[in-house]
């Protein structure tokens, strides 16, 4: 295993994990509000294409991220209006959103294939970046990486230390009771759905602006589905979602590095390892908690204030 530089590996891991982390955090909030939106993949890819187009047009990566947040949220609100306003089936609507998003992105992206975006500079963290090892591993990234980590902390505080977070969770646990207490269930769910879409859009744009960096049709290639799985395995908790996303991204990058370094390991096993290890570790850390109490009780159940 000569030649793998752990600092470079950690740096690559953080970049590789950021899109999934962002999308998973967004979906986690949506599911905490009791809504299952399977359209993450569709929102990510629409974010990827609109972010790339805006960044290219404006010559500025941040314009791209802004556009992607708006596009992701707009797409999510279609889902929100259908499922909350018209009480359509969430699973079917979410799947349709993914298909719609993939098609829409393909259409929007025609003519943008193979162009070069403006790129995103690394943050200047001064002396921190010059630290031995840590400097190269964790202090030479772009701002979005740190924003995604900050979001983990903010969401943790919001969900478990704030009144608004408590209300959001109560809507997800028992919408009827929340409604009876006078909370606007649909409005809260719509807001959560919009937030989820914004995060997915931002994650998608990170792919097309920073990680790859270019627009290719179909470029999310299932990242949205991984994000959905990580929310479940992360037991709807920001910290564990972070662990899941970094494990998955990290092992994906590690196995490629091991191959490139000529490690004598079975490649089939290496290729499957991101899925296996992520599932295994998250199951293990979830085992310590009491069983069955993890998922929001009203997850995926439509709410209609008829009574």
């Amino acid at each position: 295993m000569n030649g793998i530089d752990p600092a470079l590996l950690i740096a690559a891991l953080m970049v590789a994990s950021t899109p999934i982390l962002l999308a998973a955090l967004g979906e986690m909030v949506v599911e905490r509000a009791g809504v299952l939106n399977l359209g993450v993949e569709g929102m990510m890819i629409v974010g990827a294409v609109s972010g790339f187009i805006a960044a290219y047009g404006a010559g500025n990566a941040w314009a791209g991220f802004g556009a992607a947040i708006l596009a992701g949220a707009a797409l999510a609100l279609i889902f929100g209006v259908l499922t909350q306003g018209l009480v359509s089936n969430q699973v079917a609507t979410g799947l349709a959103l993914t298909l719609f998003g993939l098609g829409l992105a393909s259409l929007l992206g025609q003519g943008w294939v193979g162009l070069k975006g403006p790129g995103l500079g690394r943050m200047d963290l001064g002396p921190l970046a010059d630290l031995p090892f840590l400097g190269r591993a964790v202090f030479r990234h772009d701002l979005v990486v740190y924003l995604s980590l900050g979001l983990v902390i903010v969401l943790n505080l919001f969900l478990f230390r704030s009144r608004a977070g408590l209300v959001l969770r109560s809507v997800g646990e028992n919408a009827a009771s929340a409604h009876a207490l006078g909370y606007p269930v649909r409005a809260i769910r719509l807001a959560a759905i919009g937030f989820g879409g914004a995060c997915a859009g931002l994650g998608g744009a990170y792919l097309s602006i920073v990680r790859v960096p270019q627009w290719s049709d179909g470029m999310t290639a299932g990242a949205g589905w991984i994000a959905l799985a990580i929310v479940v395995f992360g037991a709807w908790r920001p910290g564990r979602v972070l662990v899941g996303a970094y494990l998955f991204g990290g092992i994906s990058v590690l196995q490629l590095n091991l191959q490139a370094a000529g490690a004598e390991l079975p490649i089939e096993l290496l290729s499957a390892s991101p899925y296996l290890v992520t599932i295994l570790v998250l199951v293990l850390i979830s085992r310590r908690r009491h069983r069955g109490g993890e998922a929001p009780a009203d997850l995926g159940r439509p709410f209609h204030a008829s009574a």
Binding site: V212, A221, G222, V253, L256, N257, A260
Partner: peptide, 11 residues
Amino acid sequence: DPSKEADAARA
């Protein structure tokens, strides 16, 4: 899979 291909190239 553009992400994976890019990661492989970087590795």
